[in-house]
């Protein structure tokens, strides 16, 4: 009986721990809806990868933004990691960092078809960030400091 109780307790605890073991993987068609959500929130969409050093450097700023503006902002981190590195790089990275922001994966090789649909100015270098809400959208082909990110996001939420 004691054993059963312990087992149930352990199961309960385990089910509360956020799961990072399943990646949400989409092709561009699957990703597209995240780029055009229309509710009261401001969406901050960041394209990144574990192999991209400037991306990793700015990830904490996106996390901080998500924490500070929980009610108004939703950060979505779109990983462009290679499928061959999902298990070896991406999953261990997510496991270690326990990111609070939503992470999804874009796996679609026909880049020339989908890159311009995200922004005409984007030539494919990362990191890039898209900020939008129901009223406006702006594409940022650049890295951010937290201050810069904050300044831009405030233009959307105020």
């Amino acid at each position: 009986m004691k054993f059963l109780r312990a087992t149930i307790l352990i199961l309960l605890i385990c089910s509360c721990v956020p799961k990072q073991d399943q990646l949400e993987i989409y092709d561009f068609q699957g990703i597209e809806r995240f780029l055009f959500l229309s509710d009261s929130k401001t969406y901050v969409i960041n394209f990144w990868a574990t192999w991209c050093a400037p991306c990793i450097k700015e990830l904490p700023y996106f996390e901080q933004l998500q924490q500070e503006f929980k009610d108004q902002v939703e950060v979505i981190l779109i990983s462009l990691d290679f499928p061959s590195q999902f298990e070896t790089k991406l999953k261990p990275f997510l496991e270690e960092k326990q990111l609070k922001s939503k992470v999804i994966v874009l796996d679609d090789v026909d880049m020339n078809s989908w890159i311009p649909k995200i922004d005409k100015k984007w030539d494919g270098a990362i990191p890039v960030t898209l900020i939008y809400n129901e009223y406006k959208r702006q594409f940022y082909p650049q890295s951010f400091t937290y201050e810069q990110l904050l300044t831009e996001v405030k233009k959307f939420i105020n």
Partner: peptide
């Protein structure tokens, strides 16, 4: 002209 993902030049 085509586009592709790549690593930004450091």
């Amino acid at each position: 002209k085509t586009r592709a993902i790549g690593c930004s030049i450091k």
